[in-house]
Design a protein around this nucleic acid. Structure first.
Lengths: 109, 109
DNA sequence: TTACTAATTTGCATTATAGGCAAATAGTTT
DNA sequence: AAACTATTTGCCTATAATGCAAATTAGTAA
């Protein structure tokens, strides 16, 4: 396949987003840069785990960071990622129309 | 966290896309339904593997299928998924501006 | 220098995922 | 019914992702 390599590359990026904590982080970075310490408060759990998630996102090219004093601030490098979230919601809504499982969590009419 | 459950739900959907063969399948379904046999030709490999990828996409609510005679035809249930692909390309392009690794595969100027 | 704080990296154990093969299912044809 | 085709499912092994804890790096302040 000619573009098999390209699909592998794309899959790497999608995979980088494919974790609840990392989606939460991306959402948190929607409007402004946030330091690791705040992100830890947000997603909870061990700081080493949060740091690992951030490095996954960074390696995929989704976020970038800058250091200011002791803190490291992360920001979204490609904001269009956020548009996608609406579509994921659409998948959930479509599903909710049939099953009931998702409707409670999204409060779909 | 309030909507931790929601993020887990979303991650499931994103995870379902996070594989080169499955991205390839989604792309193939962009404009029309395609039978499993054609999809196997496309992604290659064992048919049982392809079938498994399809069931991952189906469980996530991304595709649906209908049977016609001996064949099963799959189609995209939520086409907005495709919009997202442009954004993944944007991530790759952003990256290509710095590194050189991706530029060859995407032929970015 | 030492002590302190923020973040990252590394090692390890646990769990999840991928892919192949063979067997099972469902629909078709004879 | 039996033979045939398309697809799915169960079982297995190999590989990758996860989360925690301990060790490490980097910046700050005494």
């Amino acid at each position: 396949m000619y573009d098999k390599e390209l699909y592998e590359y794309k899959a790497q990026i999608v995979k980088a987003m494919a974790h609840p904590s990392r989606l939460m982080i991306i959402d948190a970075l929607a409007n402004n840069e946030v330091c690791v310490c705040k992100l830890q408060e947000l997603v909870g759990g061990n700081i080493s785990t949060v740091s690992r998630h951030l490095s996954v996102l960074k390696n995929a090219g989704i976020v970038s960071c800058r250091k200011e004093g002791l803190q490291v601030y992360y920001s979204l490098r490609v904001p269009c990622i956020l548009n996608f979230f609406g579509c994921v919601d659409a998948v959930i809504c479509e599903d909710a129309k049939r099953k009931q499982s998702a409707s409670t969590v999204l409060s779909v009419k």
